[in-house]
Computed example of a mutant assay.
Amino acid sequence: MRENRLRTLFADKKLALNGWVSMGNSLLAEVLSHSGYDAVTVDLQHGLFSIEAAVSILQAISTTGAVPLARCSENSLGEINKLLDAGAYGIICPLVNTREDAEQFVRACHYSPRGGRSYGPARGVLYGGADYFTHANRTVLTLAMIETKLGLANAEAIMSVPDLDGIFIGPADLAIDMGLAPDNWKDKQVTDAIQSLVALGAQLGKYIGIFAGTVEMAQRMKEYGLDMVAPGTDIQLLRAEAQARIAALR
């Protein structure tokens, strides 16, 4: 089966940079994937497109060296199975608040006896290889999102779930749940939470990723020791570069 390079980078203690597709355009996803990211995530939670569109986006990412990931819209076995069958090499699951949520998520991502995933990886076999079934459970990456105060309080229980590879921090929703503005990542409540999750991940040997909406934030997260950083969505990158060029020419 094709290597999941994110696991190799994690083993080598190297930061992974993760692109983020929210516009639903396969050409844009292909361009983004050719830009040097280690992985690119197809976002079905906030992306304005359906799972049908996600298939062509995963195909576009797969023409490059970036690892194709997907964020499911919810903790649903049906949707997670479809995304994995379509060739996603990892799933980021939103709003995992309890150990039970994490167990449900992990079960959806793995074949028996480690889980309850149904067999039918039509495109997964094309991308992963003929021996997909043999190695899928050890290759697909499972990241549960911690983005609420409840999830933060239950972080150790969540990260202790067998076969959960790690977590992906949602700092905007975490800030909102703390009574802050979504972009207030510098508040001590948020930075303390992030650093505590990084420390816990190191203690438990778990993968820790985060979304960072700005370069400044991404650089700080790199300093904190995150394993994966997503430095903005396709929309944010397009807007920022357009504004920078316009400002330079005005």
Results as ranks from 00 to 15, higher is better:
L6W: 00
R7W: 11
L9Q: 00
F10P: 07
A11W: 00
K13Q: 14
L15T: 11
W20Q: 14
S22P: 07
S26P: 00
A29N: 00
V31W: 04
V31K: 03
D38I: 03
V40G: 08
T41R: 03
D43F: 05
S50D: 15
I51A: 15
E52R: 00
A53K: 01
A53G: 03
A53R: 09
A54F: 00
S56E: 14
I61R: 02
T63V: 15
L69W: 08
A70Q: 03
E74W: 07
N75R: 02
N75I: 09
N75D: 10
K82D: 02
D85T: 04
A86C: 10
A88K: 05
C93R: 03
C93S: 07
L95S: 04
V96K: 02
A102S: 11
F105S: 00
R107W: 01
S112V: 11
P113S: 13
Y119Q: 13
R123T: 14
V125W: 01
A130P: 04
D131S: 12
Y132S: 06
Y132E: 12
T134H: 06
K149Q: 14
A153D: 09
A157C: 11
V161Q: 06
L164V: 09
D165K: 02
F168D: 10
A175T: 07
A175H: 08
D183F: 10
N184Q: 15
W185Y: 09
D187C: 01
K188C: 11
V190E: 09
A193I: 13
A193Y: 09
L200Y: 04
G201Q: 02
Q203T: 15
L204M: 14
L204C: 12
G205C: 13
Y207D: 13
Y207I: 14
I208P: 08
I208M: 12
I210K: 02
F211K: 05
F211N: 11
A212L: 01
A212H: 00
M217S: 12
Q219N: 13
Q219R: 12
Y224L: 15
G225T: 11
L226G: 00
L226N: 02
V229Q: 01
A230S: 14
P231W: 10
I235A: 15
A240M: 02
E241I: 09
A242I: 07
A244E: 12
R245Y: 13
I246V: 12
